[in-house]
Nucleic acid binder design. Structure first.
Lengths: 358, 358
DNA sequence: CGAGTGTCATGAATCGATTCATCCTGGACG
DNA sequence: CGTCCAGGATGAATCGATTCATGACACTCG
């Protein structure tokens, strides 16, 4: 793009030509140190088998040559990589970012790295990623399934790579899972709204094929039934995706409804934030004119125009526990591993969007 | 180690004896199909070199055995992996999530996968990740440096793996970079505030070692100078980290200041959202009592209590362009590659947090 | 009929580290 | 002095796919 770039390129060319800069192998180290490759390998992996003298000498040579062992070669021998994969539904959702953080911390403590991927709620993308993981001979997979049928995972099972379902109970698929009780969460939200006197509540959701979305609705209906209200007290509003923009659209639609509900329960906080914006833009007061409850309790929920009442999920814990289960299954004593379905409880966090400040 | 281990071993032995469930190799395919391994490889990688008949037959066997080629073996031969690494400062910041999305799209179009990692603004973590990438013989690295000295990258250069700086101009380090003009962005923000009549402006920032933070301040000072205001019209408020919580703390401190500034410019939107919350909690009106301008224009900026005026950065474009440069440098004709420093321009988005609605 | 041409398939060498059976050496001990 | 042993070092085999020089075969043309 500029002349300066040219000069830089020339410099780079010289660099590669001159020295054997790129990639000293274990053989180079062995030769340079006057020992066998086996010894070099031992220095790195089982230092106690090598004499103090040799160890120090080889280490010195390694540093001097800038030797870095090749993971691919190790992997090839070991049969599997030192990577964990985490496949989430939406990286734009802070809930999954927190989840990833929890997983990463735990994995790194065990000497593994994490590769985070995004299925964007598409079963096709999910399938593609899963086969990528199989090619990589990944150590294990944490996955929030996008495919309700579970056939992607069924297929994946053939490869013998352990996986743990996250934010979803392992039902037909079998195996380990760590999830949060979405039915209970949905019930909490709606029970709260009912206790505030609301009798007509909208459920804003989308991506109906996601179990989380369906379970939260189920919980909502349970809560209504509990209160002796008919199921049609819950009015469905569909959003395209589970993000802020779709929430805004849904909010607009909500405003146009005849006999507008007095409260809104959203399948996640992104939707809720969108709905909130729509209300704000239309001059509808929250919570006086309409109450809003979200789901996930992402960090931004508390920072919203009106702080958002939300159902908190222990995202980081979810990621960490799932990783632990995965490591157990993938470990030496993997044979002794028993599959577990861990279900955590969510927690309702009441803020200004549902309750009038006094 | 224990009796059970022995038993487990036996089971495993049976397993391998019975069904080739786990991991059919290319050799198995070759044997089963009655061809050589070379032919199988050709079927996969250069189908045009194989006759229609054989091709079809081998494909059928591959499907039947559920053969998946081993990436590690390919990598070993190829010398480098098909993974791009992206090392960002903070995955909790939606700006970087957008950036990652842009990078991923471009990379996948080129048949590469992206591994996103989080240095959390720690030079030590950065160094650790970089050496991980070297071990992985990664195809290339996109990095938002956490280390101001650039010595981590200087060290990394030895490995001969191409890298591109993102959101940062390649200065001393050399090489490609794609960044946004932070000085210009800072100037835009403050120019805007000055034009609204503000004469005392706080700059809320933290992590002073980050160039982005410093550049934005420089721009702010430029704008003040432009307007004939003294540098001390900019009042520094330090936050620990660049997140919402730190912003809330900084906001509290701001409230305690003698001769409180009439406007706040924050180094990023997370801080701004935190400051906004602090004001809201203290009953200080925005923008009437104090104006706020953020930076990044993340999605949540528009959803805030008072929609946030912010300096928008083309995050996804940043990621995509950086990936393109990286692919060019890592490509066949890498020798012909000229290093480039691309600098994009940010854009001021004015919303309610700075300007009184009329 | 022999030479030439083009299409397919082959299989050994290779990438770089790990592992394990083997070998060496110096010292202890009977 | 011979034997045994333990601590160290060795180097060949191995993991699984790619690549390329070589070979087999069919077919055409002079």
């Amino acid at each position: 793009m500029s002349r300066t770039a040219g000069a830089a390129g020339a410099v780079a060319g010289q660099g590669t030509g001159q020295g054997p800069e790129q990639g000293a192998g274990i053989k180079d180290v062995a030769r340079e140190a006057g020992v066998s490759v086996g010894t070099v390998s031992n220095v790195i992996n089982r230092p106690d088998l090598v004499s103090e003298r040799t160890r120090r000498h080889v280490r010195e040579v390694i540093d001097r040559l800038g030797y870095v062992r090749s993971e691919s070669a190790r992997q090839l021998r070991a049969g599997r990589s030192r990577l964990l994969s985490l496949l989430v539904l939406d990286m734009g959702n802070p809930f999954f970012v927190d989840l990833a953080r929890g997983a990463e911390r735990t994995a790194r403590a065990a000497g593994l790295s994490v590769m985070v991927c995004n299925s964007d709620q598409s079963p096709a993308a999910e399938a593609e990623y899963l086969s990528l993981f199989a090619e990589q001979r990944v150590h294990g997979v944490l996955v929030t399934p996008a495919d309700p049928s579970g056939s992607n995972l069924q297929e994946f099972r053939r490869h013998g790579i352990p996986f743990v379902l996250v934010d979803r109970v392992a039902g037909g698929v079998g195996g380990c899972s760590v999830s949060v009780d979405d039915v209970a969460g949905g019930a909490m939200a709606v029970r709260h709204l009912v206790s505030l006197g609301h009798r007509s509540i909208a459920y804003v959701s989308g991506q109906g094929h996601l179990l989380q979305v369906r379970d939260r609705r189920t919980g909502a209906l349970d809560a209504l039934a509990e209160a002796g209200l008919p199921p049609d007290a819950l009015r469905e509003v569909d959003a395209d995706r589970l993000d802020v923009n779709s929430g805004r659209d849904a909010g607009a639609r909500l405003l146009g409804m005849a006999e507008r509900p007095t409260a809104v329960f959203c399948a996640n906080d992104l939707l809720a934030l969108g709905v909130l914006q729509a209300m704000y833009a239309a001059g509808v007061r929250v919570p006086e004119d309409i109450a809003i409850v979200g789901y996930d309790d992402i960090e931004f929920a508390a920072a919203a125009a009106v702080p958002l009442t939300s159902v908190r999920q222990p995202a980081a814990t979810l990621g960490a526990m799932a990783t632990e289960l995965l490591l157990d299954e993938a470990g030496e004593q993997g044979a002794a591993h028993r599959h577990q379905q861990v279900v955590l409880r969510p927690e309702l966090v009441v803020r200004g969007s549902s309750q009038i400040r006094r």
